[in-house]
Write a protein that binds this DNA or RNA. Sequence first.
DNA 1: GCTGAAACGTCGGAGCT
DNA 2: AGCTCCGACGTTTCAGC
Lengths: 148, 148
Amino acid sequence: MDELDWKLLSLLQDNARMTYTELARQIHLSVPAATERVKRLEDAGIIEGYVAKVNAVAAGYAVSALIAITVPQPAKVKFLKLLDTIPQILECHHVTGADSYIIRLVAVSMASLERLIEQINLYGETRTSIVMSTPLPPRALKQPPASK
Amino acid sequence: MDELDWKLLSLLQDNARMTYTELARQIHLSVPAATERVKRLEDAGIIEGYVAKVNAVAAGYAVSALIAITVPQPAKVKFLKLLDTIPQILECHHVTGADSYIIRLVAVSMASLERLIEQINLYGETRTSIVMSTPLPPRALKQPPASK
DNA sequence: GCTGAAACGTCGGAGCT
DNA sequence: AGCTCCGACGTTTCAGC
């Protein structure tokens, strides 16, 4: 993981469809050398994949929300199985603190969101935060400062 | 936005580096037709971009956390300016409910996380949830069910 | 990590349904 | 309007160094 690898990560986080030819040009290396570095980053699990970012509102999902929930230990397995069957649930993190899980989901309408929450809080008390705006849009991972 | 557009979105959310030739093959259309559809999805703002997913732990960030914070109205602008200067902050949503903002960030160590939180809670009371695991890894946006 | 050549993918224009 | 075909060009891949 040298400077050039971080430069590649930065370029690919910015535009995952950039050609190897262009990547090579930007890091001042030959095409096979750049390609080889990207392959190594993939094989090392540092690059987990390449995804298109879809705008939820433009795609017809009017509402995004974050839901925190506390689930009693014995119910956790069943709870996760339920989440798996609901495609509107986009992300779920198991966290420390007062809550067990924090979930990110989308819904086509408030009525739909209400139905989703009804299903979810069969497993525990929920706290719902509706996303009004995203002042800091998802950002690329940078090279950690050397001295920290 | 017909079935084929959703199929394209699904394929590109799964592998943003898929070639137009392969995309065309999968949706049983000619290459120019598939290319044209993708361009239209981009121009319509439905596809916002293409990003490489980087594994934070593999990249040297041992800790991920979600922080909820309540910021008094007059301090919000300064608060957002601070967030902008901290590269470890990857995401920030303005939400309804008890909290003003929910932030996602990474840190190389617990000590580093502590320093970041110290900076952030100059602006309000924070509630920190450290991510232990992600049982449901970030998922693709699917076509909303027609009947809801 | 570099070069060169063959295979493959991309992008435009003309013509078709 | 959207699709197909085709040719020129750019990109990827693999060999050998």
